[in-house]
């Protein structure tokens, strides 16, 4: 089946004009985000804002900086959880940590860390395996608002039951309640967990490499990008990983459909843990 590029409908053209404009005016680059989910996000945003059309949103973007900030939040998906996909953490503990033990100093980059749950999960795992003191975690996202939540490390108490379950499935060896104190409906994570974490703004589309890492984790971020942009970001990851460095992707992501498939070998195939070949 040869797929002729389907013809752009009027809505697709409006979406394109909008993201072009946002890029021109503010430098936020959504031009190569995956089209179908971007369109859905824009439709949802129109509904939330009570706007009748993308054209109307265009006008708001021109005049109203606050609306732009809301739009940026509205266009990205920030879903996350502690120990999301527990089997990933089991594999990390069993297959990656032994490799990391051989290094005197370990740099880890969480790209697209959202509100930080994944970062604290990793800090707990590293602590329980006794190598956290040798690690530095760089946790980045393009969105200042979610980063602020990440820095605070305070989450709704109501989520702790689920996180506890996931922690246990992920091979956690203690009582999860040791890692937080409950207060007025919130769970405040132990500040010691972020002792070796640096949170910072970084946009995967427009910012470059800023260090060399032993591990890069980028889970459930690239699914929002089209293949052109995925390849661009994989180039960034490849050049930011040291030799034999480790790359971890989300559960349903793969290097298979990218230009970097052959630069890595699978370390734990089903958990999407890869190792840079040289």
């Amino acid at each position: 089946m040869v797929l002729e590029k389907s013809v752009l409908g009027p809505e697709d053209i409006e979406v394109r004009l909008l993201v072009d404009r946002v890029y021109q005016l503010y430098g936020y680059d959504f031009r190569n985000y995956a089209a179908a989910s971007l369109k859905r996000r824009i439709r949802n945003f129109l509904r939330m804002e009570g706007l009748a059309s993308i054209a109307e949103l265009q006008r708001c973007v021109l005049q109203d900086r606050a609306c732009v900030e809301r739009l940026l939040l509205g266009l990205t998906v920030n879903t996350t959880a502690m120990f999301r996909d527990p089997s990933f953490y089991v594999a990390f503990r069993e297959q990656v940590v032994p490799i990391l033990r051989t290094y005197p100093f370990i740099r880890i980059w969480h790209a697209g860390c959202s509100t930080g749950q994944e970062v604290y999960s990793m800090a707990i795992l590293l602590q329980e395996t006794g190598i956290y003191h040798r690690c530095r975690i760089y946790a980045t996202d393009t969105n200042e608002q979610v980063l602020q939540t990440a820095r605070n490390g305070i989450y709704p108490q109501s989520q702790m039951q689920e996180y506890t379950q996931l922690y246990l499935k992920a091979g956690g060896s203690r009582s999860f309640s040791e890692y937080y104190t409950a207060s007025h409906g919130s769970a405040i994570l132990r500040p010691a967990l972020r002792q070796h974490v640096v949170f910072g703004l970084h946009n995967l589309v427009t910012d470059g490499s800023f260090n060399e890492f032993n591990v890069i984790l980028c889970r459930n971020v690239l699914i929002y990008f089209n293949q052109t942009l995925q390849n661009q970001v994989h180039k960034l990851f490849y050049s930011s990983l040291c030799k034999f460095g480790i790359l971890g992707l989300g559960k349903q992501e793969t290097l298979r459909f990218t230009a970097y498939e052959h630069q890595y070998e699978p370390l734990v195939r089903i958990e999407k843990l890869y190792r840079r070949r040289d």
């Binding site: 995956a34 179908a36 989910s37 859905r40 879903t79 699914i223 559960k251």
Partner: peptide, 18 residues
């Protein structure tokens, strides 16, 4: 897949955790 939305683009699938 479980826990992801499945979206269609011309010729390929995308996923989302929206």
């Amino acid at each position: 897949p479980a826990n992801y939305h499945l979206l269609v683009e011309p010729g390929i699938f995308s996923l989302s955790t929206d």
